[in-house]
Nucleic acid binder design. Structure first.
Lengths: 258, 258
DNA sequence: CGCGCGGTTGATAACGGTCAAGACCCGTGG
DNA sequence: CCACGGGTCTTGACCGTTATCAACCGCGCG
């Protein structure tokens, strides 16, 4: 799981490709989507019943903490951030979501969202009406299975994040993050060695639980050590093996998490 | 959710009460158990089919990372710790589980556990065979619903933990933890103002992502500031409001999460 | 042009980690 | 009953990393 093809088109094209029909058949979201467990006939029949696509612009809120859970969302194109926040104003980015990621599952527990979700870039979101989804589950138990899996996956991702925040240096946290992003984009080893960060420094420092200054310095340090080159949000010439070695990770051929 | 009655008996009594029958009818695990969504007749009929209770002793492993998921587990009495670990030996406690907590859901994603689970105290675990559970779900969709909810709850708990680890001082992390524990045990305000920590300093420092020395000092500091009194694993005279105020939390009457 | 915003760099200080020693707890055996 | 020993926990001194405060840079925009 969590390996995505590198065929994701640009946002605009991505939207055009899908806006012609609300069918999920042509959707570019692959394995992670709930509907990927349905065969293509069923997908054609069923998916129009409860899915709805919409565009989002940078900064748009998808849902807020406390909102009743109307839908769960599948990110088609673009990037989201998910934030945990307290009423006193403290808040922290706990997750970034992109193509294929299911968002809003935090609301299943008690019918209300526990996080805020915002668009980091323009993009397209596929919303799955929660009530209709419920009834659909009766007919298609595979969908439920998919939700469970998505939940479990998200839980495991959170554990890894937890691990990276617990007693690691700023540089280590940053390297964990970059490897996580590389893995998500399916770029390994020599295949591709660059990244475009969809978030600004502020969101990234929040996700990593550090300050912007430390983040900036850590980037400079790692650049100096020839782990990669940084220019604003572009990371280039990434030395995958150096990163892995830096964290003392023993990696077996692909597929390992963080 | 996450409010537990304070009727939990001692470990030994708890075990005796249940060992006479494998039926879940008499089980002390309340709202959090999967079967709580079944009416009592169904519970009587169904639960013997797939549940199995067993004793654990301090230090026993319930499952390891990589193990195929044979069962999911409901902690009946006692405490567990769940650890995330890397093959290079690094590891971190990411969760403590006690009465009513469902454990092992991390394995749903890909059929294998991602965490290690160990008993912190002697106790009783109720295992739910995963394969039979699957088939049972066809007949009893409520059970699936319960699993989903438990997953979502666990996810939200992880988010809160994430938040407490991200850019908070040692003292703050510790206070978050104590409030979490208080809430879990359903002891609020003046109702009850003491705690027995089921884990040693080593496990706690791992959970909080700090060192034992810092943990020890933080306990001393907070004791000095009259937040509570500490004696080994006993925390007494807890000033609930001071803790809440210290974290600048605005609390509405009960039920809020951290 | 000048302002504001996001990002970087520098100087300083504090928090927390590290290393080392000592206190306490508790089970074992004399 | 007390002495011993090993593990757990605490305390102390020191040092390093990272937060803090402040200035500066580059860039887009009114």
């Amino acid at each position: 799981m969590r390996t995505f093809q590198r065929d994701t088109p640009q946002f605009v094209e991505g939207f055009r490709a899908q806006s012609s029909t609300s069918s999920c058949v042509k959707c570019i979201s692959k394995s992670a989507c709930l509907n990927s467990n349905l065969d293509i006939d069923r997908r054609e029949r069923l998916t129009t019943e409860y899915t709805h696509q919409f565009k989002v612009k940078v900064g748009d809120a998808i849902f807020h903490q406390g909102d009743p859970i109307q839908s769960i969302y599948n990110v088609s194109t673009g990037f989201l951030k998910l934030e945990f926040s307290l009423s006193n104003g403290q808040h922290q980015v706990t997750r970034f979501a992109s193509n294929g990621d299911l968002v809003g599952l935090d609301g299943i527990a008690d019918g209300r969202h526990h996080l805020d979700a915002y668009a980091l870039t323009d993009g397209v979101i596929c919303s799955l009406n929660y009530v209709r989804l419920q009834s659909l589950i009766q007919k298609e138990p595979m969908i439920q299975k998919s939700i469970e899996r998505a939940l479990s996956n998200e839980l495991n991702r959170a554990q890894e994040h937890l691990f990276s925040l617990g007693s690691h240096s700023v540089e280590e946290k940053l390297v964990y993050f970059i490897l996580e992003l590389l893995q998500k984009e399916g770029r390994f080893k020599s295949e591709q060695n660059y990244l475009h960060l969809p978030m600004n420094r502020g969101d990234l420092k929040s996700y990593l639980g550090i300050t912007v200054e430390s983040l900036s310095r850590a980037l400079a340090t790692l650049e100096g050590a020839k782990f990669f080159r940084v220019k604003n949000r572009e990371i280039n010439e990434i030395d995958y093996h150096k990163l892995v070695e830096f964290l003392d990770l023993t990696l077996e051929e692909s597929g390992q998490t963080i």
